[in-house]
Design a protein around this nucleic acid. Structure first.
Lengths: 245, 245
DNA sequence: CATTCAATTTCGTGG
DNA sequence: CCACGAAGTTGAATG
């Protein structure tokens, strides 16, 4: 009962040499959290520089290096699946996280003592419901509920200009291209739909297009009308799990 | 010299009650790192559920709550700028991070003892070079270097279908709509350009379009040609800062 | 490997 | 507050 639920492999205040040692020992074998004063330099797709400040450096088991500040969900600097090397220089541990393709380099210079914690994390992911796929499935299962008189022809159809979510056929035999968005549809979504409709149209098919989403922006709606396309509001069938309101 | 560069306010192995206390005390006042065994539930724009595993829960000073696993730059679950409440239930501390607009709720059930670390992080951000703005500036400063015989007319021009990066005028007085991409231009970028060109064209203006980017995908290039648009490769003027290579 | 598209995208900016 | 577009986007899926 009193057994360890979380095994913290190390938690200590360390100097540069010790920090370098800890990182070398545990990198890619466990998750390393470093609270430290550091400056950052990045060179690759773009380049950036950040002066010295107290930050949190997170080194994950897949090689991810992320440097966090006091705000934001996203790190201020990062390197996904990096190769890491640490060298000790003066009173600093300099962490170099590199990556080919694209070729880029993140350098974190950690000055003075740092607080380092090491632990093994799980990697089980999650089950997500309510993504775009779920909506596509919903429509595919009963197209006429959303667009009157239609039947399913195909789904996830590749074209040279992208993958069409759904293709239906209406009462008069005309194809209906359907683009689905899980959130508010914007002008890009409308344009995506137009791209597909235009493609099939050029093949000589009688074709029309419908954008299905719970909401739509004004510009997107105007764009659809301007190009002879339609918007259909998506409303989930029923409360799948009771409980709310 | 031996003064603290990083002030770690707390680092301790704590039970549910103590953890709840620590979070209540420091939330939004400092950054809290919790290594723990937890399960997660999310309900909002979508919904998700993740079983028990060892994870890292990060609570930042702006209210951000992020739950990290062993891999990935991004958290497995999160809530930006959340309101947080912690209650103790059985042998667990249950953290509820909510948010209005959109209305959503993230629940992290932390079972048993956890390792918690508290520290104040900086929030200075960084200076980034080589973003899209830099490229737009570069072109705006000397349009004819990229597109022969052109002069600057306007930049960041709003249309009903989005904001145009640059408008130039060529030798024959025709408008040239320019869309800029900092990386490889894809078919979406080509479409974006077409949208703008079409808009001005419908207004009765003599207009053409150019996509400027360091690279372009084959399909995007084909799409441009199919619609009478052009691609111009962007090459940075000179090594802005010496030192590399 | 390139290409495309979704994402609980997040994040900034402008109206 | 909405709306749009960039991001060093990341990440997955597909050819």
């Amino acid at each position: 009962m009193a057994s360890k639920l979380v095994e913290v492999l190390l938690a200590a205040d360390v100097g540069p040499e010790e920090l370098a040692e800890v990182i070398s020992r545990w990198f890619r074998r466990a998750t390393i959290v470093v609270l430290c004063r550091c400056s950052i330099e990045y060179r690759g797709r773009a380049s950036s520089r950040a002066g010295e400040a107290v930050r949190l450096v997170l080194l994950k088991q897949d090689g991810t290096v992320a440097v966090h500040e006091a705000s934001g969900r996203d790190p201020v600097n990062w390197q996904p699946r990096a190769d890491v090397r640490v060298v000790v220089a003066e009173d600093s541990a300099v962490l170099r996280a590199t990556r080919d393709s694209p070729r880029e380099e993140l350098t974190v210079s950690i000055r003075g003592r740092a607080w380092v914690t090491v632990a093994k994390l799980g990697d089980v992911g999650l089950q997500l419901f309510g993504g775009e796929d779920d909506i596509v499935n919903d429509i595919a299962g009963n197209p006429s509920r959303f667009i009157e008189g239609t039947t399913l022809v195909a789904r996830e159809v590749g074209t040279p200009y992208g993958r069409v979510d759904l293709i239906l056929r209406d009462g008069s035999g005309r194809l209906v291209i359907v683009e689905v968005k899980r959130g508010r549809a914007d002008v890009d979504a409308a344009h995506q739909l137009r791209r597909y409709v235009e493609y099939y149209s050029r093949l000589g098919l009688e074709v029309t297009g419908v954008l299905v989403a719970p909401e739509i922006s004004g510009q997107a709606l105007k764009y659809l009308k301007d190009h002879g396309l339609r918007y259909v509001r998506y409303v989930a069938r029923a409360t799948p799990t009771a409980g709310s309101s």
